[in-house]
Simulated assay, not measured.
Amino acid sequence: MIRIEPRTAPSRAITLGLPVFSALVALGLAAIPLIFAGANIAVAYSEMFRGVFGSVFAFTEMLTRATPLIFTGLAAALAFRARLWNIGAEGQLYLGAMAAVAVGAGLFDWPAVVLIPTIIVCGCAAGAAGMVASTTLKTRFGADEVVTTLLFNFIILILLQYMLEGPLQDPMGLGWPQSAPILDQGMLPQLIDRMRVHAGLIIALICAAVAQFMLVYTVWGFKLRAVGENAAAARHAGINVNRTMMSVAIVSGGLAGMAGVSEVIGLKGYLTADLSPGFGYTGIVVAMLAGLSPVGVVISALFIASVFVGADSMSRAMGVSSYLADLVVAMSLLCVLIGGFFARFKVTRIHAAKGKSA
Score class of each variant (00 low, 15 high):
I4N: 10
E5N: 03
R7Y: 02
P10F: 07
S11C: 06
A13C: 01
F21L: 15
S22N: 10
G28I: 09
I32W: 02
L34R: 09
F36K: 05
A39L: 07
N40I: 03
F53N: 01
S55W: 06
F57W: 08
A58G: 01
I70R: 05
G73W: 08
A75F: 07
R83N: 15
L84V: 10
A89Q: 14
L95S: 09
G104E: 09
G104D: 10
W110M: 14
A112G: 14
A129W: 05
T135S: 13
L137S: 06
K138L: 04
F141S: 14
V146Q: 09
T149A: 08
L150I: 15
Q161W: 00
G166M: 03
P189Q: 09
I192T: 07
D193I: 09
R194H: 12
A199H: 00
I206T: 12
I206K: 05
C207S: 14
Q212P: 00
K223M: 15
A226Q: 04
N230Y: 01
A231Y: 01
A237T: 11
I239T: 14
A249P: 04
I250F: 13
I250H: 06
V261G: 11
A273M: 02
P277Y: 02
F279T: 01
F279S: 01
G280Q: 10
S293R: 12
I299N: 00
S300R: 06
S306T: 13
S313A: 15
A317T: 08
M318V: 00
V320E: 14
S321I: 06
L324W: 15
A325K: 04
M331L: 15
C335V: 14
V336I: 15
L337F: 02
I338C: 06
F342H: 11
F345D: 02
V347S: 06
R349M: 09
K354S: 11
A358G: 13
